[in-house]
């Protein structure tokens, strides 16, 4: 258990670091772009909302940095991320609340599926080195070099159109009322298919390559030779001996790479006008909506940390050496 506790402590530190970066960035950079926006909206904002933005962006020059930091942390703990300018007058927390489920559903699920498919394909590619499987490598290299969003653009150009099964954007048919009925769920699935496939194609290749290299490395380990010497079936040697061990570094790689992957997948949402955090981030950047940008950064970081913790639990279950009895 000490393994998980250690990891948990590390994630707390990371979360604190992210919060502190968020606190420092607007204070270290000269100029007060937020001030201008507040002034513009002043007439429509309650003094309370203005106060909260002042705390978030350090506009109160009478406070020392330490005082500002304490107020800032206090406000974050209450879940107050300020008001969004783009979606004025909605609080940032509410805006993120509408985007987060879409992102978790699309990015979260496809990332996990991509990892699973890539690991399986990489297992075979590494095991059957010197056969047809080697042809996968140049293809996957090319695919992994293409930015996610560009692949999405190509997919839209080729596969969508007035008569196409695939809608060009959005998360569900306009006019439908969200709910747990077949029509709505079916529409959601149809709308997420293309973005999901885009993310899958781009992310799978990385996992294929890393798993293949791990398989090649693990295949020359003594225990794999022993497994062959024991006359076990090809499948058993490949899965229970080689892949089972090659999976471990790939799982820790998965946790570490999440931060990179999430960045790329958010862009796919923009291309497909998928109403998740990525699209909101895009809108926030376009409108210079700093409170929303910062809120989204914080939420994405926290989600990645949570996903990391889950990956750690998986690692714990996979590697007996990290478990300590008693």
């Amino acid at each position: 258990m000490s393994f998980l506790l250690k990891r948990f402590a590390f994630y707390l530190v990371t979360a604190w670091a992210a919060v502190t970066i968020n606190f420092l960035v607007p204070r270290l950079i000269p100029g007060d772009p937020v001030q201008a926006l507040i002034t513009k909206q002043r007439g429509q904002m309650t003094t309370e909302a203005v106060r909260s933005l002042y705390v978030l962006f350090g506009l109160d020059k009478n406070e020392s940095l330490a005082e500002q930091y304490v107020h800032y942390l206090g406000q974050l703990l209450r879940g107050d991320l300020g008001l969004s300018f783009t979606f004025f007058p909605s609080p940032v927390a509410d805006v993120i609340g509408t985007g987060l489920p879409w992102t978790v559903g699309l990015v979260g699920i496809t990332t996990v599926i991509g990892f699973a498919i890539g690991t399986a394909a990489g297992t075979v590619a590494g095991w059957r080195r010197g056969s047809w499987a080697d042809a996968l490598i140049p293809i996957t290299t090319f695919l992994s070099s293409i930015p996610y969003f560009w692949l999405g653009l190509v997919a839209i150009a080729l596969l969508t159109g007035p008569a196409s099964f695939f809608p060009a954007g959005g998360a569900y048919e306009t006019g439908l009322v969200p709910g747990w009925d077949w029509e709505f769920v079916g529409s959601v699935l149809r709308h997420s298919l293309l973005p999901a496939v885009t993310i899958l194609i781009s992310s799978v290749s990385g996992w294929i390559l890393s798993m293949r290299n791990m398989m090649v490395t693990v295949s020359s380990e003594d225990y794999v030779t022993v497994a062959h010497a024991k006359g076990l079936s090809e499948r058993r040697v490949m899965v229970a001996y080689a892949a089972r061990n090659a999976l471990l570094p790939n799982v820790s790689g998965f946790a570490l790479a999440l931060g990179f992957i999430v960045g790329g997948t958010l862009l796919v949402e923009i291309v497909f006008s998928y109403p998740g955090l990525g699209l909101q981030l895009f809108q926030a950047v376009g409108a210079k909506d700093y409170p929303l940008m910062q809120g989204i950064f914080l939420i994405i970081t926290l989600s990645v940390l949570l996903a990391n913790l889950l990956a750690d639990v998986a690692y714990l279950a996979l590697d007996p050496r990290t478990r300590r009895e008693g």
């Binding site: 590390f10 994630y11 530190v13 990371t14 670091a17 992210a18 970066i21 968020n22 960035v25 607007p26 950079i29 772009p33 570490l256 999440l258 931060g259 990179f260 999430v262 960045g263 790329g264 958010l266 981030l281 950047v285 210079k288 700093y290 940008m293 910062q294 989204i296 950064f297 994405i300 970081t301 990645v304 940390l305 990391n308």
Partner: peptide, 18 residues
């Protein structure tokens, strides 16, 4: 490790756009 886990692209976005 902290810098590794924090999602790079959103971080770059908030810094450059500020």
């Amino acid at each position: 490790n902290v810098f590794l886990v924090i999602p790079a692209l959103p971080l770059i976005i908030i810094i450059t756009s500020s």
